[in-house]
């Protein structure tokens, strides 16, 4: 297993730790998926979480947002202990999780989907926040009365990201926003990450499209079999090779000859 890269300094002033995940363990029933995962996200940075299928990326996001209970470890967000908090509390604290699979409410309009995302937001502020969130996606902002089920996959993905933005997150966790999208829409959705970063929103991104993810990130973590196996700056020169190396967990010489 490669040694972890040393702490990478964030350009600019002294970085403020936004999310601190310490030795987190979680799983489903008897199946342990995460075995002591520790990661850190600093305020305003974009971090990608990469790894092969079944490595525990989605599970880690669920554990952080409280959708899945922890069986071990601690979570701190914005200098507060959020271990054991449910999704409602974490969302209120500004830690928003956009789950995979663009699961909009198909029987309700875009407008209603957005209202639901602002369920906890004070009534006076709700309309303003929804308007601001939709400003990132003019494609759907113009079709407010269309049912969620009538949207294409890409539009549904825009809708769920917009839903997340209604909370004005300090950290937005996106789980495979590109899955099932046409290539043009993938860039469209991922480009919003850059805009959000400029606004000061930190992003924790889980993506299968490794190159696209790296190109939009400051740092990356690689996870396999529920353990972090690599941490590196996104600008590291031979990152793709190191990632592949980390995934397979063996040196090339160890790969068995064909039978």
């Amino acid at each position: 297993m490669p040694t972890l890269a040393p702490e990478i300094p964030i350009p600019g002033t002294s970085p403020q730790v936004l999310l601190d995940v310490q030795s987190v363990e979680a799983g489903y029933g008897k199946i342990g998926v995460l075995h002591g995962v520790s990661i850190t996200v600093y305020a305003g940075e974009v971090v990608s979480l990469l790894g092969p299928n079944g490595a525990g990326k989605t599970t880690l996001l669920r554990a952080i947002s409280g959708l899945l209970p922890l069986t071990g470890g601690r979570l701190r967000f914005d200098a507060r202990d959020i271990t054991g908090s449910g999704p409602r509390e974490t969302a209120r604290a500004g830690l928003v999780h956009v789950i995979e699979g663009h699961r909009v409410f198909t029987q309700q309009t875009i407008a209603d989907n957005m209202l639901l995302a602002g369920y906890d937001v004070p009534r006076r502020e709700r309309a303003l926040r929804i308007e601001q969130a939709l400003a990132y996606f003019p494609e759907i902002a113009s079709r407010l009365q269309v049912l969620g089920g009538a949207l294409s996959g890409g539009q549904q993905q825009m809708l769920v990201v917009a839903q997340g933005l209604v909370r004005r997150p300090r950290l937005l966790m996106l789980d495979e926003p590109s899955a099932g999208l046409a290539p043009v829409l993938v860039d469209r959705v991922l480009d919003v990450i850059g805009e959000l970063k400029q606004q000061g929103t930190a992003i924790l991104l889980v993506e299968q499209l490794v190159e696209k993810a790296i190109s939009r990130s400051d740092r990356v973590y690689a996870i396999t079999r529920g353990r972090i196996v690599l941490e590196a700056a996104a600008a590291t020169p031979d990152l793709p090779r190191r990632l592949e190396h980390a995934y397979f967990g063996h040196t090339d010489a160890a790969i068995p000859p064909a039978v």
């Binding site: 999704p87 969302a91 409410f105 029987q107 209603d112 639901l116 369920y119 909370r167």
Partner: peptide, 17 residues
């Protein structure tokens, strides 16, 4: 609307808070 949302997709409703 929240009732409808929970009834259609409980998990997504929870993730929205």
């Amino acid at each position: 609307r929240a009732f409808l949302a929970v009834s259609e997709d409980n998990f997504a409703a929870r993730s929205l808070g």
